[in-house]
Structure formats: C-alpha cells, structure tokens
Design a protein around this nucleic acid. Structure first.
Lengths: 184, 184
DNA sequence: AAAAATACTTACTTACTGGTAAGTAAGCAA
DNA sequence: TTGCTTACTTACCAGTAAGTAAGTATTTTT
C-alpha cells in the first residue's frame, strides 16, 4: 500500500476518534499532510471509502494482535484487550465503535456494513475468550459467554466516552472493577 | 415557556438522539415546524444554546421521574431506569450522553459543562440507588456503589449504540443479564 | 393613544462542505 | 520514443452550514 494512503488513513483514524466521522473534512486531512483536497479524493473518492479504509485497517490490526495473544492464558488476553482501550483513553481517543455508532444513521450503506462487521468481529473474539477462560477455570461469570461479552464490551466502549467527559480516572475504575468481577 | 420553544427543543432532542448534534442543522428544525431558519435563531441564538436547552429539559425530566420513584423498592427504581433506556432503544434513539460524548471536543465550553452536569446527575442518582438497595438487601454486588454505577450506566449507554448497529435484541440481552447479576 | 416588547419573516453574508473536471510532471513499459 | 499509469495540482462546482441585520405584524404595557 502507498505511503500517502497509509498517512491519510492514519490521520483519518485519529480524527474519527477525536472529533467524529462527520466532524472532520477532507481539508483536515489535506492541510496537515501538505497536499490538496483533491489529492485525498484521488485515494478515496468518497468519504465512505475513507471510512471503510480506516475500519479495514483497524480490523486487520485487531486480528494481528489477537493472533499474537492466542497462546496466552485467557485472563492475559483479556488484560491485553483492556490495555488497547486504556491506551486510547490516555490519548483522549474514543474507540471506532463508540465514534461511528452514534453517526450510524448518517453513514453510507456500505460503510454501515463495515461497522457491523467490525462490531461482530470484536464480539466474536471476546465471546470465545470468555468461553475458553471459563472452561479453563480462569474466569467465573453468570450466564452465557456471548451476553457476558456484550456487557464487557459495552463497559469498555462507554468508559472511553465517560472518560472524555469526566476525566480518565473513570477508565481505570471501570476496568479494575470489571476484572475484579470476572477473575477467579 | 413558549410553545414554539418547547417544540424546537423536543425536535432537537430527537435529532440529537437519531443523527447526532453535529449532524442536524437549523433547517432540520425550521422546515418541519414550518418556520424560517432565523426564527430558530431568535429562540436559540447559537447552536450551543439549543444544546443546553435540550440538556436542561432532559435533566428536569430525569429529576421529575426519579422523584416519582422515590418510595419504590430499589430494584423497581432500577427497572424503571432501564425502562427509560428500553423505550429509547425501541424508538431507535441513543441516549444524550451516548450522542454528545463523541462530539464533546467539538462542543462550546458552556455546553461541555452542561454535558458534565447531566452525566454527574445520573451517576449520582444511580450510586445512591445501588447503595440503598444493598443496604436494604435488594441488591448484591462487589466493590463500591459508585464503581458499580459506572459499570451499569456504561452498559446501558453503549447497549443503545450496539443496538443501533446489530439490532435491538442486543438491548434486552444486556439489560436482562445486568439485572440477573445484581438482583438477589 | 403611544410606546414597547414579542415573535417572527425576508433577505442576506461568510465560511465551508464533499466532490469533480481538466491539466501536468514523473516514471515505467513496449 | 511513444503510450500509459500514478500521483498529484489548479480551479472550480453546487449545496449547505451557522449566523445576522433590518423590517413587520401582533400583542401587551404604560
């Protein structure tokens, strides 16, 4: 992939997390990268193409990371996931889901599908992690793993939102209580 | 308060929850209410004034509702709170916090303060509800009530976001598991 | 009856949005 | 060396954003 393309995606990713998808413009990409508006359109004809590019990159990174953790005990895997969110919290970012879901109704259909795909991928991984962790006596929780994954992922997503408003002590309080609930 | 003002606030509230604060314009308010752009500016000079108006109304409604529940057993109070979110989920809305927090960085400082105020009010009420509920042997949970309130409120907020993307069976799964965790 | 406040409309400005058409310099391939 | 592609720039488009100044009709107050 071209270097310019990567720079655009990386900046767009940041802008989506900091200001939201509908709150940045092609100018916000072009000016800092010292190119013209139209150059961004050359790489990503429509804004949805750019959005999809960002999600694809994120999804790929997620897959790479979870693959790296594959052989670790499940509680370590979960802690790694929480660390990804913690880093975003410290950078003042929110997660892609937390940023794109509120704007969901304003997104182009193919970008909506990508958001769905990302959402399902994370949920699927966490469900497996919880299921295996319980089997291996590393986690304890009530109910089925999929529902538990929903609870945890919503905690993490919204903790970034709340951190932005009330300061990022919120994040550590939520993530610690969350681990305390589930670890044996 | 003037009738027009109320209509504007009510429509703005809906638009914030459906499309987000930065995704609606004065035209989206004026046209359905059969008035001109400038008439909305007459009642709310800047967009932040409108946003603050919406939050104030919401905050007032929240206080009225929780006052009405005051004498109920705590598990009933919590169920009522969840019902408020459920109704929004069914209407395809997200909550004000879920909508405004992603856009937080783009909001005017006085509107940011209002968002904070709303956030604290809800958190404060839920913390008290949980604390009393545990004292009265109606709830059981680990850790302090404030952290538990954070977990529950983030579950509810983000469940509306996830419902929008994956369909609103998500909401009931989350709210049921949540109650099952905490009820004795 | 005059003055003033209320609730608008008309008509506009400034600034920016995503997007496009046409042109170009540099590199590569036959 | 000709033809084609890549990666842009220049110059522009129509549309929309928030916001405002000035005027008007209606009601309320003095």
């Amino acid at each position: 992939m071209s270097e310019t393309r990567e720079k655009i995606i990386s900046l767009a990713d940041k802008l989506i997390r900091v200001n939201g998808f509908n709150a940045f413009s092609y100018k916000d990409i072009a000016t800092p990268l010292e190119m013209k508006n139209a150059a961004v359109h050359y790489h990503f004809p429509g804004k949805a193409d750019l959005g999809i590019g960002v999600i694809n990159e994120d999804l790929q990174r997620f897959t790479q990371q979870t693959n790296k953790w594959q052989k670790l005990p499940e509680e370590e895997q979960l802690k790694h996931l929480i660390d990804v969110f913690r880093k975003h919290s410290q950078a003042g970012n929110i997660c892609l889901m937390g940023s794109l879901a509120p704007d969901y109704n304003t997104l182009a259909p193919d970008m909506q599908r990508k958001v769905q795909e990302m959402c399902r991928a994370i949920l699927h991984w966490l469900t497996n992690c919880l299921e295996n962790g319980r089997k291996n006596k590393r986690f304890k929780f009530k109910g089925n793993a999929e529902n538990r994954a929903l609870l945890i992922i919503t905690n993490l997503q919204a903790s970034l939102l709340m951190s932005r408003v009330l300061g990022n002590t919120i994040f550590s309080r939520i993530s610690e209580q969350l681990l305390d609930d589930i670890l044996i």
